[in-house]
Amino acid sequence: MKDPFVLAGKEYQSRLIVGTGKYKDFAENKRAVEASGAEIVTVAVRRVNITDSGKENLLDYIDPKKYTILPNTAGCYTADDAVRTCRLARAAGVGNLVKLEVIGDERTLFPDVPATIEAAKILVKEGFIVLPYILDDPVTCKKLEDIGCAAVMPLAAPIGSGLGIRNPYNLRIILEHSRVPVIVDAGVGTASDAAVALEMGCDAVLMNTAIAGAKDPILMAEAMKLGVEAGRKAFLAGRMPKKLYATASSPLDGMIE
């Protein structure tokens, strides 16, 4: 079944986007990414460690020729810092795609909405393909879409919390109104959470800790791949309506007497 995920004009087979943080080592990270089937991989932008700068780095394991690299602005608390980080990421030569996150609060890692909007405006103007991490707020998602973001990425729950989709009703409203892809970003804990997101009609899901923080990250990566696929297929299939009372599956005719 051909059912590509189209993001900024490019087709992907996988609807799972994975992060590269918190892994034991690069080798485990690489195996988890492979097991997940993801084609888009998020990375962070940081200073090179000058004392051992020649050592191998992440992109020696995650080949940018094979994967679409999605640099994030994690750790940025102002629009200025986020924009600066995106410009650096682009200068490093992995393309125009950026995951914009402007954090507003250290404990919840919830986004600073006005700063995210401000940064998105600048970045879109500069030709970036902007994927903003944002609250599950339909009004803000609409604003980001109108600015020209290529997708909206509402959180399911706080980053790294693994709580699953805490506000499915808001997400439904976002899905109803959005003309750009809706990618659930952050808060997914296990495969059923990912399946629920896709089943609801989300276009893709982005996760890191749910895989990297599992006891067996490689196996969880595979579970997430299957969860996303199952959820997507269930969405396309159209679920049966919920009913309060039973309806028998077996015929009543021909019962023995």
């Binding site: 943080g21 990375v43 962070a44 200073r47 994030n72 650096l88 200068a91 490093a92 800790t209």
Partner: peptide, 30 residues
């Protein structure tokens, strides 16, 4: 000094006393 230097300019761009240089790369992140 806060200006990004394009890769094609690396060979021409000379450093000066007091320059503040940032060299960044990609690391694991979500």
């Amino acid at each position: 000094n806060r200006d990004i230097i394009p890769r094609e300019d690396y060979a021409q761009h000379r450093l000066h006393v007091g320059d503040e240089i940032e060299v960044v790369h990609f690391v694991g992140g979500g």
